[in-house]
């Protein structure tokens, strides 16, 4: 086990280094750079001289060869300096410090929500296959899968402003936007966060529920379930102890992939809901070729992915004694 951990950790470092290179180069693949997109966005009336453009390039270091730019970027990151966001004219570190905690504050509860809701429903659906409840959850599940989360967000915003006069979107209601932290503000944030979690988690819940149902249905007809039944265990007890235990480990092993998916896969929903998370930040950064910001977010996402996969693997090793490390 010890040597496995060391081996995997070394692998992770190598993978992250490779990803950082790929991320940095891919960001710059589109023609032009930040200066061209910046110039075209402000070039409405005034003409910008070629000299000014060159000066800007020089100022941002964009005139250097790519490999030099990468080396500067990565060595700075190792010293804790993520560089400057051209667009925001602030350090990337600042922007991330603002957005990442809120992103995690939404992502982690959403992940918990997805599994806490989907697994019990999946179990129920499989055990009571073709019952009214199963059909109902199947129906709801397909709807949840078919409707994009952002559309659900729009509908929810409409319904709550139209019929309840409530305020949806953002993490803070207007009256708390700039207020100091207080009990009322915490309550306000949790209420808004609850809605965000519900909307962002819907499709994940629907998918996980279907996977859990399918995995468990396969296991329910296995011979060891019959052995447990012949032993005299009560039906629910034996189902939870044996087939659920076997069926749940591959489902849980996907937890690693949900981590980055929640952060980057929710740009549109987060934009619609006006959530101050990293998703919209990444979307804008890529659009305006704000390369240090985009590359940093992608780097962080890939580190999270690698860590998440590692945790999933550990979880699988723990859950299934047949897996050798």
């Amino acid at each position: 086990m010890g040597s496995y951990l060391v081996r995997r950790s070394l692998q992770m470092v190598v993978i992250v280094v490779i990803i950082s290179m790929v991320a940095f180069f891919v960001i710059q693949l589109p023609p032009g750079d930040f200066v061209t997109s910046y110039v075209s966005s402000i070039a409405g009336g005034d003409r910008i001289t070629q000299d000014a453009v060159l000066a800007l390039r020089q100022q941002f270091g964009l005139d250097q060869p790519m490999i030099v730019q990468y080396w500067r970027w990565i060595t700075n990151i190792l010293q804790g300096n993520f560089g400057l966001s051209f667009q925001h004219q602030r350090t990337v570190g600042d922007l991330l410090a603002e957005r990442l905690p809120l992103t995690l504050a939404i992502t982690i509860p959403t992940t918990i929500f997805v599994y806490a809701v989907a697994i019990p429903i999946g179990i129920y659906s499989a055990v009571r296959q073709y019952s009214v409840g199963d059909y109902l959850f199947t129906f709801v599940g397909f709807i949840g899968l078919a409707i994009p989360n952002f559309l659900l967000g729009i509908v929810l915003i409409y319904v709550s402003t139209r019929y309840f006069g409530g305020n949806v979107g953002g993490l803070f209601s207007p009256e708390f936007e700039n207020a100091p932290w207080s009990f009322a503000r915490v309550m306000d944030v949790s209420r808004n966060m609850g809605l965000a979690i519900l909307i962002i988690g819907t499709s994940g819940t629907a998918a996980t529920m279907r996977v859990m149902r399918g995995m468990l249905l396969d296991e329910l007809s296995q011979a060891y379930v019959e052995t447990a039944r012949a032993k005299g265990l009560s039906e629910w007890r034996l189902i939870l102890k044996y087939p659920v235990r076997v069926a749940v480990s591959p489902v849980l092993s996907t937890v690693g992939f949900t981590l980055p998916a929640m952060i980057s896969g929710t740009e549109i929903t987060a934009t619609v809901l006006n959530l101050p998370t990293t998703g919209p930040l990444l979307l804008n950064a890529v659009r305006s070729q704000d390369m240090f910001l985009a590359a940093s977010i992608i780097l962080i996402l890939s580190i999270l992915t690698v860590i998440g996969t590692f945790l999933s693997d550990l979880l699988l090793v723990w859950a299934d004694p047949r897996i050798k490390v």
């Binding site: 011979a223 060891y224 052995t227 299934d320």
Partner: peptide, 10 residues
């Protein structure tokens, strides 16, 4: 089947 009749994870 003595293999499949025992739970693989217990």
């Amino acid at each position: 089947e003595p293999m499949s009749s025992l739970s693989p994870v217990h």
